[in-house]
Amino acid sequence: MTDPRAAVAAVVDPEIRVITIDELGILRAVDEDPATGRVVVTITPTYTGCPAMDVIRADIRRALAATGHPDAEVRTVYSPAWSTDWISASGRAKLAAAGIAPPAPARTATVVPLTLAVRCPRCGSPETEQVSRFGSTACKALWRCRSCSEPFDHLKAL
């Protein structure tokens, strides 16, 4: 049997397939009952309405079944609330390499202010502008680079 933690940590996010659920910070725990060997995985959603959660749960179960844990349980918790600050350094690097500008540190103020200077993930220029505060998935906004004219996604600080 393979280490269940490693199997679950390797599951990729179905909407941003360059990053694993572990790097994204939505994998909270992988516990194994020493008596029964049953694996319990705890995850938390990025956004409350994230439509990828069902696919993520199915992918976790599939990954565990393939490593000899067919009766795994996937629990979803909401507290503490996910923050983009939980995205790992390797996750941020992978996002940038895939053309998605990683988030700035999350603000704690109740009203989210405008994010300052998002760098273009393609040419590195800080001369960028927001096209839409909401993008192709709940966690992203649409931006455009004024230097190289390329549009790009930006993972919103949350």
């Binding site: 959603p45 956004y47 409350t48 309405g49 096209v131 839409s132 909401f134 192709s136 709940a138």
Partner: peptide
């Protein structure tokens, strides 16, 4: 862009509702 924005906000509201 507004189409996407309002659909996203709707999704957030639906998430909280669920």
């Amino acid at each position: 862009e507004e189409d996407i924005a309002l659909a996203n906000i709707a999704l957030d509201q639906l998430g909280a509702a669920r």
